[in-house]
Simulated scan of single mutants.
Amino acid sequence: MNADSDSASASDSVKSPPELDDSETVVARQGETRGAGTFGFGEGEKGDALIIAVRCQGEGEIEVSVKPVNVGFPLECVDGEASTATSTSTSTTYNQIGVAGAEKKGTVSVLAPSSVRWSMTIGRGEPQRGEAPEPSGETE
């Protein structure tokens, strides 16, 4: 049985920041951090999208905010073993921001309870092209 190697892989997943696709460029990484933290990232090329990959473990919600684009999102973290590719409790989130100003240098701040451990990778890449999102809200 490979329980020990599975556990070792799981615990490494929060210690190591998430990986990005080969077509994306890493501009900053934050290793395992407990509770709140802030770190900076460098400038990109005009037209680049900003990619934020977050992995967390522990019971609670974290709030990620990105300046200067003024984008934020919550992430519910999972208590127990850190997520792995084969885990049913995945707590790795990838977000791509393709708004005006996303190519500028900035900072990422995470608000998190001390019970939560997280790691993060910031990258740059081509904005994803696809269908426009469906309008939300009800119309009458």
Rank of each mutant, 00 (worst) to 15 (best):
S7K: 15
P135S: 02
R129F: 02
G72T: 07
G42W: 01
D22C: 03
E140R: 00
S5W: 13
G130V: 05
T90M: 12
V27Q: 06
K46T: 06
V78E: 12
S23F: 12
D6L: 12
S65E: 15
P113C: 06
V64N: 02
S115G: 12
E63T: 15
G106V: 03
R117K: 15
G101C: 00
V66A: 08
S7G: 15
G37C: 01
S115D: 13
N95W: 09
M120D: 03
P133W: 06
D6F: 11
G80Q: 07
E81P: 15
R124G: 13
F39A: 01
P74W: 05
S91L: 04
S114F: 07
G42Y: 02
M120W: 04
V108N: 10
L20K: 08
E134S: 04
V78N: 09
P133Y: 07
I97K: 12
I122T: 14
S23L: 12
V78M: 09
P135V: 00
R29T: 05
V110P: 09
T90K: 14
E131R: 10
P18N: 00
E140A: 00
V99Q: 08
D12S: 10
A49D: 07
D21N: 06
E131S: 03
V66F: 02
D22K: 08
K15Y: 02
T93G: 11
K105T: 04
G80W: 05
E43I: 10
S119A: 14
N95F: 10
T33N: 02
V64I: 14
Q57D: 10
S11Q: 13
L20G: 02
V99E: 04
K104E: 01
P18W: 02
R124M: 11
S119D: 03
D48A: 07
E63S: 15
L20P: 05
D21C: 08
V27D: 08
A132M: 03
P127G: 07
A10R: 11
V110H: 03
F41N: 03
M120H: 06
P17D: 03
T139K: 00
L75D: 08
S83D: 15
E76S: 08
V116D: 05
F41A: 05
T90W: 13
E126V: 15
L20N: 01
E59V: 15
E45W: 00
T139G: 04
S11L: 09
N95G: 09
A36F: 05
T107N: 01
G72K: 13
A102M: 10
P74E: 07
T92G: 06
D4T: 04
G137Q: 01
S65Y: 11
Q30P: 09
P17I: 04
I62Q: 05
T92W: 04
E43T: 12
E131H: 06
P68C: 05
P17Q: 08
V71F: 13
G98Y: 00
P133I: 05
G42N: 05
E19I: 01
V64A: 07
S114H: 08
E45P: 03
G123C: 02
A100Q: 06
S114T: 12
S5C: 14
D21R: 11
G60F: 09
F41I: 04
R124C: 11
L50C: 01
G125Q: 14
V27G: 07
Q57G: 04
I52T: 00
A112Y: 00
R34Y: 06
